[in-house]
Simulated scan of single mutants.
Amino acid sequence: MAGSTGFLTTHVLDTARGVPAAGIRVTLHRLTGMGRDWLAEMVTNDDGRTESPILPEESFAPGSYELEFDVGQYLNRLEIETGNPRFLDIVPIRFGISDADVHYHVPLLVSPYGYATYRGS
């Protein structure tokens, strides 16, 4: 249902340091019966947010999606060691969008050894 009024946003908070997580690559895929379709890739700004909705109104539609957050690259840049191989690297979040006219917000709260998410507003 392209052309709806809904949209998807995200942000990343570094809960270990108590700050927004800047510079994290975020990739969005739509999940299909045959796999995944790449939709967008953005990098979080100094506020831990993408500069615009990662799935804007004109592309927004109900369905199953996956956000991937490149947490490993972020931790490398901060020189935070978590072992070899790293405990967290790419963090995937799979979720569903059922209403084409609602703002969906899917944030990531991350530390070197754990993460959480929720449906925000």
Rank of each mutant, 00 (worst) to 15 (best):
H105P: 00
T50F: 02
V43M: 08
A21I: 00
T9V: 12
G3L: 09
E41S: 15
G63M: 06
W38A: 12
S121W: 05
R77M: 06
V19T: 13
P20Q: 05
L8Q: 12
G48V: 01
E81C: 02
R17L: 08
R86H: 13
N84T: 15
R94V: 10
R25G: 05
G48Q: 05
I90D: 11
S64R: 15
P53N: 12
G18W: 06
M42I: 00
D47N: 07
R119V: 11
L39G: 04
F87V: 12
L88Q: 15
D37K: 15
T15E: 11
D46Y: 04
L8V: 04
I93R: 09
V106S: 14
I24E: 05
M42G: 06
Y113P: 00
L28D: 04
S111F: 05
S121T: 10
G72N: 06
V102G: 01
G83Y: 01
V43N: 10
L39S: 10
I24C: 09
H11P: 00
Y104T: 10
T32D: 07
S52Q: 14
V110H: 07
P85K: 15
D101I: 00
S98E: 13
L75F: 13
E58A: 07
A22T: 05
M1P: 08
G33T: 02
S111C: 01
A116R: 12
P20C: 11
D37I: 11
T82I: 12
R25N: 14
